[in-house]
């Protein structure tokens, strides 16, 4: 789909009243986050490929460091406050899950997940989502629960924590102390995104 907000970059207002100092600090740190070396090279490649398929980035936008953000979360192993009784804690779940995805790729195609075609990778992911896996690695590790309680929420939460993803959706972004004045439909403040082909507002 064509970019609806081609001339919008939420970072353009990072030095304005829309961003307070603590926001500037945490977003800058997030964007500068590098990938920690906590997984085996195989697992790392599996995770990178997985993220490419779940949140494929628009070509025209600055890259999102989703892999780095998720790796930090895995490294911290901080709980969410609700763990499904059939799943282990976060880091353990990801370690087992990445290995199981690779085992599934080997069982189906005889090669690691990172080397599958887009179509093969997506078919495999749909099998996990539907609990229709073949590999023995899933024996005591329910694939659909891993999918809906861990894989999907963790990946989309990392991706949509990044300003590049906010810009692509026309989200106003950080807003404090300056908020918004125009709240009604088809009205926007000058510091909000202009939608392509829509001449309402400002």
């Amino acid at each position: 789909m064509a970019d609806r907000y081609p001339d919008y970059d939420v970072l353009a207002k990072s030095d304005t009243l829309s961003w307070n100092p603590v926001t500037r600090k945490v977003i800058a740190e997030r964007m500068a986050t590098a990938e920690p070396d906590i997984l085996s090279p195989e697992q790392h490649a599996t995770l990178r490929r997985l993220i490419e398929r779940i949140v494929p980035q628009p070509d025209n936008r600055p890259p999102v460091n989703t892999v780095a953000l998720l790796l930090h979360r895995i490294m911290a192993n901080r709980p969410d406050g609700y763990r499904h009784h059939r799943l282990p804690p976060l880091r353990e779940a990801w370690t087992i899950g990445l290995a199981a995805i690779d085992a599934e790729a080997q069982a189906r195609h005889g090669q690691p997940f990172a080397l599958l075609s887009n179509r093969e990778a997506d078919d495999l992911l749909r099998a996990i989502e539907a609990s229709e896996t073949q590999a023995e690695a899933w024996q005591d590790f329910p694939p659909a629960l891993f999918w809906s309680w861990r894989l999907i929420p963790d990946i989309v939460s990392a991706y949509y924590a990044h300003p590049s993803a906010w810009s692509a959706m026309g989200f106003g972004g950080p807003a404090s102390p300056r908020g918004y004045v125009r709240l009604l439909a088809n009205r926007r403040d000058p510091w909000e995104a202009r939608e392509e082909g829509n001449h309402h507002g400002a």
């Binding site: 926001t23 709980p79 807003a175």
Partner: peptide, 16 residues
């Protein structure tokens, strides 16, 4: 901060 991720510091996230 104006940020969903950073503000997770407000939630009860101890293991349950």
């Amino acid at each position: 901060a104006s940020d969903e991720t950073h503000q997770e510091k407000l939630y009860w996230t101890d293991e349950r």
